[in-house]
């Protein structure tokens, strides 16, 4: 099966959201989000802080009631049939949603019991999950002494007790060190192999690129782009050609030559020695190099750069991820207050 193709399986989507809206006061946290997630996929929702990722997940997970729009999980409406939806999902929040004052085992046993497992079954399941997540040694310790990574692992373990077909992971690796992050990625990949669908949010472009079959880029409460990582990258054009020249007074000449031969606009770095141009047709680069030699221009360096998701994001939203991070954080703070 082609995972990259976004099609319903047996006529059903794992997640189907249409025009989701959530307002906190006068601030639209989510403003008309549409999502379609194929069963069995890892779907990434990518966006900066305050873009509405967590709010979207909370609505899909029945934790928040949408102000407008509708969402279905495997065909079940999140507003009308919330208790069914809850039987189909596991949620791992941005901040570990486990009990600080209890031990890892106690946490898992309580969640198991709540999910209807018997006493012995709950103990067995907890031990099994703790082993799987490498927490057996810490099983009897209170969570206060757990590291961030351990807490996240326990949190994910708790979401898997009922083996839900859909798992929401809200920024599963934010704040983790690179090694723990890689472990988390492996775990997520293994999850999907068992048949689960994973919807994860992330601020890290690399993470979405690495894990997700499809990505929705979300900004200011809206989905601004959707597709596979490759599609998104392709949407802003092809690779770019970067030339560094030895004599910076030749810059203008080089720029003109590039535009004549490749028939594209090029960009010049502030110090003038670097020229960047989109590379539509690799074959034409040969012509360019010959033309440059003919003009007597000496190159210092030449490279081809593939587009990154960072550039995708920049192009799509028209602003950088970091640029208005502070503004977004303010909006988010306000949002949190409103929620309270």
């Amino acid at each position: 099966m082609n995972v990259n193709k976004n099609m319903p399986v047996n006529g059903k989507w794992a997640v189907e959201a249409q025009g989701l809206v959530k307002k906190f006061g006068s601030n639209y946290a989510v403003n008309g989000v549409n999502l379609n997630v194929r069963p069995g996929a890892i779907y990434g929702v990518l966006g900066p802080n305050g873009a509405g990722k967590t709010t979207t997940i909370k609505m899909l997970a029945t934790l928040l009631r949408p102000d407008a729009g509708s969402a279905k999980i495997f065909g079940y409406d999140v507003v009308k049939e919330p208790q069914i939806v809850r039987q189909l999902i596991g949620v791992t929040g941005q901040y570990a949603s486990v009990d600080e004052s209890l031990t890892a085992t106690e946490n898992l046993v309580i969640f198991s019991r709540l999910l209807g497992l018997g006493r012995a079954e709950a103990k067995h399941k907890s031990a099994e999950l703790l082993e799987e997540f490498g927490l057996t040694e810490a099983a009897k310790r209170p969570l206060k002494n757990f590291s961030g990574g351990m807490r996240r692992r326990l949190d994910l373990a708790a979401s898997l007790i009922a083996q839900p077909p859909l798992i929401f992971l809200d920024e599963p690796t934010t704040g983790l060190d690179p090694r723990t992050r890689n472990q988390m990625w492996d775990t997520i990949r293994r999850l999907v192999k068992t048949g689960s669908t994973v919807l994860l949010t992330t601020q890290y472009l690399q993470e979405a690129d690495e894990l997700a079959d499809r990505i929705a880029v979300i900004d200011r409460g809206r989905v601004v782009a959707e597709g596979t990582a490759d599609e998104l990258k392709a949407s802003i054009g092809r690779s770019s050609l970067q030339l560094r020249i030895q004599e910076s007074q030749d810059t203008e000449l080089v720029r003109r030559t590039v535009e004549q031969v490749l028939r594209v606009h090029s960009a010049v770095s502030p110090e003038g020695a670097k020229i960047t141009a989109p590379m539509a047709d690799a074959d034409k680069v040969t012509d360019l190099l010959i033309a440059l030699r003919a003009a007597g221009i000496k190159l210092a360096e030449m490279s081809v750069q593939k587009p990154t998701l960072d550039e995708v994001f920049l192009t799509i939203t028209g602003h950088g991820v970091k640029e208005d991070a502070s503004e977004e954080t303010d909006a988010r703070k306000k949002m949190n207050e409103e929620v309270k």
Binding site: A61, T62, L63, R86, I89, G90, V91, G93, Y95, A96, S97, V98, D99, E100, F111, L114, L115, A158
Partner: peptide, 9 residues
Amino acid sequence: GVFDRFKSL
């Protein structure tokens, strides 16, 4: 945070 989980169960 644990109350968020209770709500999602």
